[in-house]
Design a protein around this nucleic acid. Structure first.
Length: 259
DNA sequence: ATGCCTTGCATGGCAAGA
């Protein structure tokens, strides 16, 4: 089964690219992040016409996650257990945002995840990011079944995952607490399977400062599988071509095959 | 030090991205 994950940065802007991606790579399950659309405005038809089922969770112009599957799409969930919420007003109720969508696809529990960015180290969003990752880790470790958590993790686990680690001094994405939270997730048999096939490649290049032409990118989009599935990962790649050309997302799709 | 670019929306300057 071929699973792809892509931060599409607006599904309505890039719907044709998404359908092309499915067909170009013969994808079974596509997980999208940052669809940036409410459920009622999601462009379902192009996917169903291509032979896929669609599940989407979007509340407003922020975040938004989708699962596009041709191998079944059952038991859809819009949050994982104990998933934390967020609100810019810390005294207001903390809302569960559209950052997680899970379903059973072809015998595998697939989750499309958009991990909070963190914004700045001193910002409440950074603590939100850490809590999101620890509760995700607790859920992943509670499973003995095949499951995969794919998406935009907004973390570079190693300095070699970015073009210049010194650029991120004082910024989020490379800090020790973020890496510790990610290493808690990726422990006890839970593994980032995408690393096996994409080491040294990037999945994100900022739109600004000519980052893509200079190949100044970050490897921050992953597939993380439970022990019951990780051993079945047999191939994978980052579709760097998808980042090129007019109207590209700033992220590239991350594809992994599972036997 | 800042903008560099891109998105959606109360369609006009923001918020957010990383």
């Amino acid at each position: 089964m071929r699973i792809a994950s892509w931060n599409i940065n607006s599904v309505r802007t890039r719907i044709e690219r998404a359908v092309d991606l499915l067909q170009r790579h013969d994808i079974d399950v596509l997980a999208l992040q940052e669809t940036k659309v409410k459920d009622e405005a999601f462009p379902t038809e192009p996917f169903t016409e291509a032979g896929y089922e669609v599940a989407h969770f979007g509340l407003n112009q922020w975040n938004g996650v989708a699962l596009i599957s041709r191998v079944g799409l059952e038991n859809v969930r819009t949050s994982f257990p104990q998933q934390p919420g967020y609100h810019n007003d810390p005294t207001a109720p903390q809302d569960i945002e559209a950052r997680a969508l899970g379903a059973e696809c072809g015998g595998v529990e697939v989750w499309s995840l958009y991990v909070p960015n963190g914004r700045e180290i001193a910002h409440p969003h950074y603590d939100y990011k850490l809590r999101f990752l620890y509760t995700l880790g607790a859920y992943a470790h509670s499973l003995s079944t095949p499951a995969v958590f794919v998406g935009d993790y907004n973390i570079a686990p190693r300095d070699s995952d970015v073009w210049d680690a010194s650029f991120f001094a004082g910024k989020t994405h490379l800090t020790e607490p973020e890496r510790h939270a990610f290493s808690f997730l990726c422990s006890e048999g839970v593994e980032e399977t995408s690393r096996r096939f994409t080491e040294g490649e990037y999945s994100y290049w900022d739109y600004t400062a000519m980052r893509f032409p200079k190949n100044e990118g970050m490897r921050i989009d992953f597939q993380v599988a439970t022990a019951a599935l990780a051993g079945r990962a047999c191939a994978g790649f980052i579709d760097r071509e998808e980042r090129s050309g007019k109207g590209a997302s700033d992220h590239a799709p991350v594809v992994v095959d599972y036997e």
